[in-house]
Amino acid sequence: MASRKRPPSKIRTISIEPNYVNRDGSALFKFGDSAVVCSVNGPTEVKLRDEKVDKATIDVIFKPLVGLPGTKDKTHEYIIRSTVESVIKSNLYPRTLIQIVCQVMMDDGNILATAINATTYALMNAGVEMKDIAVAVACIVNKDGNILIDPELREIEKAQSYHTFAFSKTSFGLLFCESTGLFTEEQYFECYAICKIAAQEIIDKIRMKIQLDLT
């Protein structure tokens, strides 16, 4: 297997394209060759049966690149919804629907984190009020015990364990984490620390992009 062309703690080139589709808010977020487009529509009319009297109903749909959505995609929907529900000020939009749709455009690993970041940018693009923003990144522990951040598909296939973390920008509190595979407590905390540093880099990139677009 060809070895990685970048250092273990370096994330791939981030590329963000806001207003990718014609919706209230949208953004394409890429980690190298992994790309997800997220569209946000809302606050908009909600069906009576889904209506919440005191806050917005947040609905997330995750569409994979290949095949019909399965259980893994439903899990992604639940994760993205829980993550953004904790930052969106949904009490400002009672009896409305905020519909979030994520479509995978290219899959080269680290897809869930790509989707979370795309969602965050799309929500800002739509002007939905939030008390903070969520940024996410994943890493793997490979067979040699090395931690590689922002893994590609071929690296994930041969990994011992795979971890995705989502942090909030202001307090750097952990909003969400998911780990699969065999790993030690020490490895877990090392992954957490490395991902936290990478999250700051992602936040800086997002801030730069917002600045660029507004001027």
Binding site: R23, N41, I61, K63, G67, L68
Partner: peptide
């Protein structure tokens, strides 16, 4: 062929 419509392009669609 799979041509499922998505709420991204069709607002208000019930998946």
């Amino acid at each position: 062929l799979n041509t499922e419509l998505s709420p991204m392009a069709f607002a208000g669609l019930e998946p």
